[in-house]
Design a protein around this nucleic acid. Structure first.
Lengths: 232, 232
DNA sequence: GCATATTTGTCCGTATGTATA
DNA sequence: CTATACATACGGACAAATATG
């Protein structure tokens, strides 16, 4: 069954909401808590508990819920409330199907260099830094940033937006991995290699690397993920 | 400046909203009015005017606005309200960038036949029927259905959803075309040809046809669209 | 299976802040 | 600068559905 939220988790966040639109800020907070894993998949988000914890009205909170539901981080069950999304194995498979199609196509059609690889470079460095600190969850974030930067090379607002959503969903699956170091660490070197190949504008090789990267990650994630789900 | 909505346009729709979820039905009505062009790009949708016209509460209406905003048919400006989206030429270019990348990749990676081309076949027949009736706006819809069916061949929920949104946006641009027959008619035969090639599982040729189709359509649409926008 | 308490769904009225004429 | 219109956010009310004992 769904775990119930402890309102104390959010008590410290009240100070954060002194900017732009309240519902947006509430959504930002909840999004961050979900990304960090404080609110794990399957958790029920009670209107009363969270509304009280953050000191916002029900209407405003429900607006924030709607925003996150549209982002597919929450699911709404009629007359039952909202819950942190629980991905199915099919979701994971579909996410990698999309990643393969989009990321590989972007690389394939990059055209003539030079490419602006600054963000990709920064993401790899972020990964090396977090790995050095033993921050394996941060390494997962850096990995997501790297692949986001690759998609950004297409300079398409809609593709960028699509991948923002898809990668946020993917993070939900990452939480199911009980050994994040074992999972994320090997891909840091592969990202570095891909960056080097991109710098050399060897698009054919880059696409090959990317394909095998995604195949491996999907295989690994689906195996471990389905095991974890089976326990629930 | 933004045209103001005449509440009388929606008066007849009050009878339509006597079913399931109110916000969904309001969104259905507004979506249809936008697709038909009754609510044209740039029109401001006042909460009071539409709420009164349809007899629904502000909260319900705002939920409907949110649904359509997420579909990118409306845009929300903080403290100013919601408006029917006005696409820029860059939007049109980006839409075709995404279409090229997604549709061509889907076709390229179709794998071994047989493919389920029933929906694509139905869409071509829909196009032939509407063209026969001289319903050129309907022909545009049929064209969208055809390309949606092509993307569906990838069996990816997320890609299908992406294209649903992108093609709905594209329809906003279609309204700028003052001669829909001239624009849509030539593509009916090209869709039929693409269908034939797909049936023969000649994926290389299919991708070529699709690429030239999209290049032509984009060029034509961007030219006419930028002229029309220039007049506003 | 039933009755009760809790939670959500829907809507209203109002106070406050913001943009525009 | 003032007035008007509108959007934001809150709190409360009541019905309906769900969960719990």
């Amino acid at each position: 069954m769904a775990a119930e939220l402890d309102p104390a988790v959010l008590a410290g966040d009240r100070a954060l909401l002194e900017r732009s639109s309240t519902a947006d800020r509430v959504a930002d907070i909840l999004r961050a808590r979900i990304a960090e894993g404080f609110l794990s998949p399957g958790t029920k988000l009670s209107e009363d508990a969270i509304g009280t914890a953050l000191g916002v009205s029900r209407n405003t909170l429900r607006e924030a819920f709607r925003l996150l539901t549209h982002e597919k981080l929450l699911v709404h069950e009629l007359n039952r409330g909202v819950f942190v999304r629980v991905l199915t194995v099919q979701d994971v498979v579909d996410i990698y199907r999309v990643r393969r199609l989009v990321e590989c196509s972007v690389v394939r059609h990059l055209g003539a260099p030079p490419y602006d690889l600054a963000n990709a470079e920064a993401a790899v460095e972020e990964g090396e830094r977090t790995a050095g600190d033993g921050d394996w969850r941060g390494l997962g974030t850096a990995d997501i940033h790297f692949h986001h930067a690759v998609v950004d090379l297409a300079h398409s607002r809609r593709l960028t937006e699509l991948m923002t959503g898809v990668l946020a969903e993917l993070r939900l699956a990452f939480h199911a991995m009980d050994n994040p170091r074992e999972f994320h660490e090997p891909y840091l070197g592969r990202n570095r290699e891909l960056l080097t190949v991109l710098r050399a504008a060897d698009l054919v090789k880059a696409e090959l690397l990317l394909t095998s990267y995604l195949d491996d990650a999907e295989r690994q994630l689906v195996r471990r993920y389905s095991e974890t789900i089976a326990l629930t």
